[in-house]
């Protein structure tokens, strides 16, 4: 009991050590110009550009005040792709985990496809869907599908058979068992899969947006590279990291809010 206090302190402070350490290192390197600013801009400059990008008046510069538009474009693509991946991957994964025939049917094909890096699909996606929303959503959905599918499958397969037997015995038919036993029992795995899927969604969003769409956080990064504005590139990276983190937390909270099993088992 007497170690609790120090533990809480440690728990709260430890996550911040690395970001602040990196920031400090960066500050020192830039201030002493160990690395020239055209390669690595000064953190102060990045801060100013960041404020300008997020809060500035859109009329006054190329990147000024573009954030709200870029953000809504990007998050729309991520959510659309993620929703698509969930809608297909979750039921398919649960089915494959419970029914051997489905597993035999899908298993080897999906594992072969999984071995293909997502970036390989980019040229084909460009031919099929052109530059823009559809290509990005396709890439995001494709990438997020696998962790969602695989984890749902593992969760469904590892259910304690006694629980399904108990469900049947207590009068639940097949369909009700899905909602009252299968999904709750597989919930910890499902949550893991969805969180991994959400993380990878952001990675593939940037990939999709690098191809020349006019707006979006990935587009801004690519655009800034061409104009030599590496401060804006770093602003973009930091924003994507922050938003990705928030999305993960938000998703977890939402699942915990909606499902008893997510609240009590994760």
């Amino acid at each position: 009991m007497r170690r609790v206090d120090t533990n809480i302190w440690l728990q709260r402070s430890l996550p911040w050590v690395l970001p602040f350490g990196l920031l400090l290192g960066w500050y020192l390197i830039s201030s002493r110009e160990i690395i020239p600013t055209y390669l690595l801009p000064h953190p102060g400059q990045v801060l100013v550009s960041g404020f300008d990008y997020i809060l500035g008046d859109p009329q006054k510069g190329i990147y000024t005040g573009r954030f709200p538009g870029d953000f809504s474009a990007s998050i729309g693509r991520v959510l659309l792709g993620f929703a698509l991946a969930t809608a297909i991957g979750l039921p398919l994964g649960l089915l494959s985990g419970r029914l051997e025939k489905v597993q035999l049917l899908l298993g080897s094909t999906l594992n072969a496809l999984r071995a293909v890096p997502g970036i390989c699909w980019l040229p084909l996606a460009l031919i099929w869907f052109g530059i823009g929303l559809k290509t990005t959503v396709f890439l995001v959905a494709l990438a997020a599908f696998f962790p969602i599918f695989l984890n749902a499958e593992a969760g469904a397969r590892q259910i304690n058979p006694t629980l399904t037997q108990a469900g049947t015995m207590l009068g639940m038919n097949r369909w009700r068992r899905v909602y009252r036993v299968l999904i709750p029992a597989a919930m910890p795995h499902i949550v893991t899969g969805l969180r991994l899927g959400m993380g990878i969604s952001w990675a593939y969003l940037v990939l999709g947006e690098l191809t020349g769409v006019p707006n979006g956080l990935g587009a801004v990064i690519m655009d800034a590279r061409m104009l030599g504005r590496n401060d804006i590139i770093i602003v973009g990276i930091i924003l994507i990291a922050l938003i990705g983190r928030l999305c993960d937390t938000g998703l977890h909270l939402l699942l915990r809010l909606c499902f008893k099993s997510a609240r009590r088992l994760t």
């Binding site: 629980l163 037997q165 108990a166 036993v181 709750p184 919930m187 008893k260 009590r264 088992l265």
Partner: peptide
């Protein structure tokens, strides 16, 4: 109806 040896309650 069956009462199992153990661990058959729904943990959630």
């Amino acid at each position: 109806c069956m009462v199992f040896q153990e661990d058959a309650l729904f943990p959630w």
